[in-house]
């Protein structure tokens, strides 16, 4: 009985705080993407025409975790299969955040664009029962400064 109450409390906490955190994060992502839209990002390796003076390596990473509620829902969902929307939004947030941090670094160095961008995903910590609870996304590329 006590265990059930603990699980119910954790689920409720996860639902309330997790939702608020996700909404806040998406709002911040959209705002910063708007601010940084002048910095163009390409994943091709050719240098665009122009006289480029410097090309430092820029990078950004983020480790982000699921909340308790979403993890529970995903566990149940994986019994029947299908889309795990909780993980989809987690990875989307992580990728967009990592790219934004990379672009922020590029802007701080006065770059106009970032080319040859690579994204890498790793699961670094595992939750109970060998379940992946958090992911790391790392983005890196070459910033071009004219």
């Amino acid at each position: 009985m006590v265990e059930l109450i603990i699980i119910a409390t954790l689920t409720a906490l996860g639902y309330v705080f997790g939702r608020a955190a996700e909404r806040k994060h998406f709002a911040s992502i959209l705002r910063r993407e708007e601010q940084l839209k002048e910095i163009l990002v390409f994943n091709e390796r050719q240098l665009p025409p122009g006289d480029w003076q410097q090309g430092p390596l820029v990078n950004g990473n983020v480790v982000i975790s699921l909340d308790y509620f979403k993890r529970l829902v995903s566990t149940l969902k994986s019994l029947v299969g299908g889309r795990l929307t909780a993980y989809e939004s987690l990875l989307e947030r992580a990728r967009r955040e990592a790219l934004l941090r990379m672009k922020e670094q590029a802007q701080a160095q006065g770059a106009q664009m970032v080319i040859n961008v690579r994204l890498e995903t790793a699961s670094i910590s595992k939750g109970k029962g060998d379940q992946v609870g958090s992911v790391e996304v790392y983005a890196y590329g070459t910033a071009l400064i004219s």
Partner: peptide, 14 residues
């Protein structure tokens, strides 16, 4: 892991 969100300590570690 209960509340969700960024694990800043791990981000820094990596």
């Amino acid at each position: 892991n209960i509340f969700g969100g960024e694990l800043t300590a791990y981000t820094e570690l990596l």
